[in-house]
Design a protein around this nucleic acid. Structure first.
Length: 777
DNA sequence: CAGTGAGCGAGCTTCCGCTTGACTT
């Protein structure tokens, strides 16, 4: 055994570091935190000054045992977890759990995985910073209190299994607030006026010069008046200004900017990006992918410089060190960059290749020279009015970093590619070709996509690089938010065209506002957010995290005791929770739409056990109430009495087939036909209210056909056993459980005995399943 | 995997941040 044991957080890091340190050092990994508050209950002793009750979780016990053993066999244990609040706490937990002593324990930190950085860290050990650890304990305990006090209130008031927390509830609020902004938004029209002139280029050939009127025009009448004025006007170049301009490269990637760019340029979801990046990291191709730092190691800077020089020449090099702007950044790691700058591309899946290329380009570009431009603005005078046309031109005089990388933006605004202007002189008279006044509308604020929500959270200092992707998943899994598309709407707009002496007035149509893979709040999300906003405005405040972070900083500085901070918070927070529980009115979010004209009973909507539900009658009445789930595209906020009454027209009998009734209804998975106790989903284009018996029969027969194709083989020995074709290829179905078939095996050749063998093998290897924690559907 | 939602009551759900696998419908 080695004399020295080094413990880091990540196994990939351990492998790299071991190479730098040589034989006397053995490097192991803690795989993140090794201890946490007790899983059940609060895990906090409220009677005893908020003493945390820590436990080693089941899946960490073996690891902790191994670490203990390794520590015992080593002379010195080097705790090398990250240099941030969480990392310090990990070191402290290791110290406590492994039973280490101060004499033979050293705490070291490094921000980059380079040999020099690590050797230097070994030269400069320190002790565990208990103040920083306390700041982490405060963070942990606060999050537990907020989450575990609020969630049960939601179970009681709205629906079981819901959740609330410092991060997720604010994330949902952002989406709900944005949705309301969009609803409130009314777009304003104005006229954008563009002119096309004919001028001659260097060779005497006619070319077009496009220019835009300085200000937009408010109304159609005014636009017409303007065009009238232009009919007999002279157009003359009044002024030409040319000025140099620069574009600078974006900083290298952090977790959040990588997620944004991968979404924009490659169309990856936030979690997809992280999974692919993890692969690249484990293969040693990139640095750590969960980071808030834009910092690059000096090694990286030097090798990037060399790479750019050999690729493009020294002129293209501009070494920069960027600085993190985001709130609450802890900068324990480098920016995300390629491990080796001279590796332009990699082997791997297509997705891995593309993500790597993106990271490589962004990193290299960040160390390249600014792009240089020459911007030209020509002002064009109109003889009959004081208004001016402006023509903009742009010439790239030096491409600089643009040679490898251009950052994308979320703006879908009307951007015109600026190009070079033809040669112009002041006082030149211009030949007008057309002037077009086109009606344009102000745009609704866009809904958040996954990545733009992450950007907003980061901006507010809410959440950490390691939690962005899980948070996005959580709010979708809880049913607060749904990712979806919205089809664009059609609208007409007016285009006025002046050509010669004639003004043409035309109406055209365009679609607008279509959105893809955006986050929409559900009724549950809206009701939960409204409820939390009402009772817990402090927690829901966009600045709540930033405010408590200041408190944590004070603890880290040793100015405040962490239990004092928690005590102050809890004494204020807990009574509010109790008060919200005591509220004895009906379900939160319930509202009454009117009365059923047939029975005179009350019609209302609320969040039920299975989501939004409409109800006729109330529970206390002698006659039981009737219920019907809202449709996917309906919202509790906007649904009308008429629409609700429609819902109760189902189930509807559409006719008979083979002497059995066919009925249509809407279930958990959408509209379906029920016939002979079998269920058949309706395709999207069929409306359950209008579907005919003929169509229904056709669907039933199609379903029978499909089912027949599904079966590869059945066995006379046992009717419960079947070989079937499924979404993931052939499989064995037995007693309602599914079993795999080995890939190389031809399923058609399997005998009854083969199948039973496969089933027994798989049942045997079925390990006791872990609690479903992340993958709950 | 499917028409649920009363009422009774037991027992469960839940947070955020560090880390990787295991796991397949």
């Amino acid at each position: 055994m080695s004399k020295n044991l080094v413990i880091v957080e990540s196994p990939a890091k351990a492998k790299t570091i071991e190479k730098f340190l040589g034989k006397d050092f053995h490097v192991l990994s803690s795989f993140g935190h090794i201890r946490d508050l007790a899983e059940k209950g609060f895990g906090i002793d409220f009677e005893n000054n908020y003493q945390p009750q820590y436990e080693v979780p089941k899946d960490k016990q073996k690891l902790v045992g191994d670490l203990k053993k390794a520590a015992k066999e080593s002379e010195i244990v080097w705790l090398a977890s990250d240099e941030d609040r969480e990392g310090e706490a990990i070191s402290w937990h290791l110290f406590e759990v492994l039973g280490l002593t101060k004499e033979r324990t050293k705490r070291i930190v490094f921000h980059e995985i380079t040999k020099n950085a690590i050797l230097e860290a070994i030269e400069n050990p320190r002790e565990i910073d208990i103040n920083l650890v306390d700041a982490q304990q405060a963070r942990r305990v606060l999050d537990r209190i907020v989450g575990f006090e609020l969630s049960p209130v939601l179970w009681r008031k709205i629906k079981p299994s819901l959740s609330a927390g410092r991060v997720q509830s604010v994330a949902v609020r952002l989406i709900v607030d944005r949705e309301r902004e969009i609803q409130k938004f009314s777009s304003e029209a104005s006229y954008r006026v563009t002119a096309v002139f004919l001028v001659t280029d260097k060779n005497g050939k006619p070319v077009e010069l496009k220019a835009e009127l300085q200000n937009r025009i408010k109304t159609k009448d005014q636009a017409l008046q303007f065009l009238e004025k232009c009919k007999n006007a002279q157009f003359q170049i009044e002024n030409i200004v040319t000025r140099p301009a620069k574009k600078s490269p974006a900083p290298p990637f952090t977790t959040s900017t990588l997620q944004q760019e991968a979404a924009r340029k490659l169309g990856y979801s936030v979690s997809q990006t992280m999974i692919i990046a993890q692969k690249l990291y484990e293969a040693g191709l990139i640095t750590y992918m969960r980071t808030d730092s834009v910092n690059l190691s000096s090694l990286a800077l030097n090798t990037a410089k060399a790479e750019i020089t050999s690729m493009a020449g020294e002129k293209y090099v501009h070494v920069r060190q960027f600085h993190t702007k985001s709130k609450g950044a802890q900068e324990a790691h480098e920016a995300i960059r390629p491990s080796y700058m001279n590796q332009h591309e990699i082997n791997g899946t297509n997705q891995e290749k593309r993500l790597y290329e993106l990271i490589w380009k962004r990193t290299i570009a960040s160390q390249m020279a600014d792009a240089e431009l020459e911007k030209t603005t020509a002002t064009i005078n109109i003889s009959t009015t004081t208004e001016k046309f402006i023509a903009n031109g742009e010439v790239l005089t030096f491409d600089g970093f643009l040679r490898v990388y251009m950052e994308s933006t979320d703006d879908e605004g009307e951007q015109e590619n600026s190009t070079m202007l033809p040669p112009l002189k002041v006082n030149d008279n211009l030949n007008i070709q057309t002037i077009v006044a086109q009606e344009r509308f102000t745009q609704k604020p866009p809904r958040y996509a996954e990545a733009s929500l992450v950007r907003k959270l980061e901006e507010l200092g809410i959440g950490r690089p390691s939690t962005y992707a899980p948070t996005i998943s959580t709010i979708q899994n809880r049913g607060y938010v749904e990712k979806g598309d919205r089809e664009g709407e059609l609208r007409t707009f007016t285009t006025l065209t002046l050509k010669g002496d004639v003004i043409n007035d035309a109406e055209k149509q365009e679609t607008f506002g279509s959105e893809k893979a955006k986050l929409f709040p559900t009724d549950i999300g809206i009701v939960v957010t409204d409820f939390l906003n009402e009772y817990f405005p402090n927690i829901m405040d966009y600045n709540f995290t930033a405010n408590v972070e200041k408190e944590f900083d004070n603890i880290a500085e040793g100015e405040t005791k962490w239990t004092k901070t928690i005590d102050t918070f809890y004494k204020q927070f807990h009574p509010v929770v109790e008060a919200s529980k005591a509220r004895s009115d009906h379900k939160v979010g319930e509202h009454i739409l009117g009365t059923d004209p047939k029975t005179g009973r009350q019609v209302s909507v609320k969040i039920g056990r299975f989501g939004p539900v409409a109800q006729i009658g109330i529970a206390d009445e002698e006659e039981k109430p009737l219920f019907a789930s809202l449709l996917k595209n309906q919202s509790m906020e906007t649904i009308t009495l008429e629409e609700v009454l429609e819902l109760f027209k189902l189930p509807r009998i559409v006719g008979k087939f083979e002497d059995k009734e066919m009925s249509v209804a809407i279930g958990r998975f959408g509209p379906y036909i029920k016939h002979d106790n079998k269920f058949i989903s309706l395709p999207k284009e069929e409306d359950p209210m209008t579907i005919t018996a003929e169509t229904a029969i056709a669907l039933i027969q199609k379903k029978r056909q499909d089912d027949a194709n599904k079966v590869i083989k059945v066995f006379p020995e046992d009717t419960e056993l079947g070989l079937l074709n499924g979404r993931f290829g052939p499989y064995i179905s037995y007693k309602k459980k599914n079993y795999k078939i080995p890939k190389k095996q031809d399923p058609a050749l399997l005998t009854y005995e083969d199948c039973i063998k496969l089933i027994e093998e798989e049942d045997k290897s079925d390990k006791p399943k872990k609690k479903k924690r992340f993958t709950k559907k």
